[in-house]
């Protein structure tokens, strides 16, 4: 019943985010036939050739995407969709507990025979379901696009890229939960979520452009495994490997963040 309550709160936002991201990917993919034309492809490749290698690396484009290949084009486009999904997940996490404390509706739940751990569980499950819903909407849109573009052979990789990207999304989502459980209300939650995400994203870009700062890449979960690497890994192209340490860090963040959220919330004073 508590999860149902949470779902009802979150559903509208999820449908809006899912709708916008689906629309963006459909529009981008609709440009594929014109991007794939040899003239345009040449133009893009020549322009990208002038960009610093580090910057291209940060976008996973160091091998220069071939826009004539549907999956390379898809992975390029999907970088931006992932940013949207991570921001959504992080805002969802950061607002999860803090919003209810800001709105003071938590006072109602606290006065009921409901354990605090039940409140956390319902919020975690519901927001996880919302992320899956948004991701599914984007995935369905991507798959539908492949039918129009006669690229149905790519569906398997598209599904794998979607699933794989759940790892950094969930890591940011759980960092959001950590913020949420510490905050006393949600007045600063969106600013905090966006600052944190773009901060780590920028760190990832810097770590790829400046060799000496390469170690900083571990502070940026979104840059651990760019979609193009995931695609090439699963398709055995150019012996591309995955950043396993990055995956482990994400898993630790997800599990550690979950444990921290439960422990902290069970001892937290409610100020409202």
């Amino acid at each position: 019943m508590l999860i149902k309550l949470e779902n009802r709160k979150n559903l509208k936002g999820a449908l809006i985010w899912g709708g916008i991201l689906s629309f963006i990917i459909i529009i981008y993919l609709a440009f594929f036939p014109s991007m794939a034309s040899s003239d345009f492809s040449e133009l893009i490749n020549s322009k990208l050739g002038f960009m610093p290698e580090g910057l291209l690396e940060s976008f996973g484009l160091n091998d220069m995407p071939d826009f004539g290949v549907f999956l390379e084009y898809f992975c390029y486009v999907f970088q931006f969709i992932i940013i949207g999904l991570v921001i959504y997940g992080m805002i969802l996490g950061t607002k999860s507990i803090a919003k209810e404390e800001g709105d003071k509706s938590i006072e109602y739940l606290y006065s009921k025979p409901i354990k605090r751990s039940q409140i956390v569980t319902s919020k975690i499950i519901s927001s996880f379901l919302m992320i899956i819903l948004v991701m599914t909407m984007v995935l369905i849109s991507s798959i539908i696009s492949t039918f129009f573009l006669n690229e149905t052979d790519s569906i398997k990789v598209i599904v794998l890229v979607h699933l794989f990207n759940l790892i950094p999304i969930l890591a940011y989502w759980m960092i959001g939960f950590i913020f949420s459980v510490i905050l006393r209300d949600d007045s600063k939650s969106i600013v905090l979520a966006l600052s944190f995400f773009f901060g780590t994203y920028l760190i990832g870009v810097i770590s790829n452009t400046v060799d000496k700062l390469n170690f900083l890449k571990y502070f940026s979960p979104i840059n651990y495994n760019p979609s193009v690497n995931v695609y090439k890994f699963f398709e055995n192209i150019n012996n591309v490997s995955l950043n396993v340490i990055g995956i482990i860090i994400c898993v630790i963040l997800i599990i550690g963040g979950t444990i921290f959220t439960y422990l902290y919330y069970n001892k937290k004073d409610l100020y409202c």
Binding site: K9, D103, K104, S105, E107
Partner: peptide
């Protein structure tokens, strides 16, 4: 019953 009422 709280002094300030806040529900969904």
């Amino acid at each position: 019953v709280p002094s300030e009422v806040n529900y969904y």
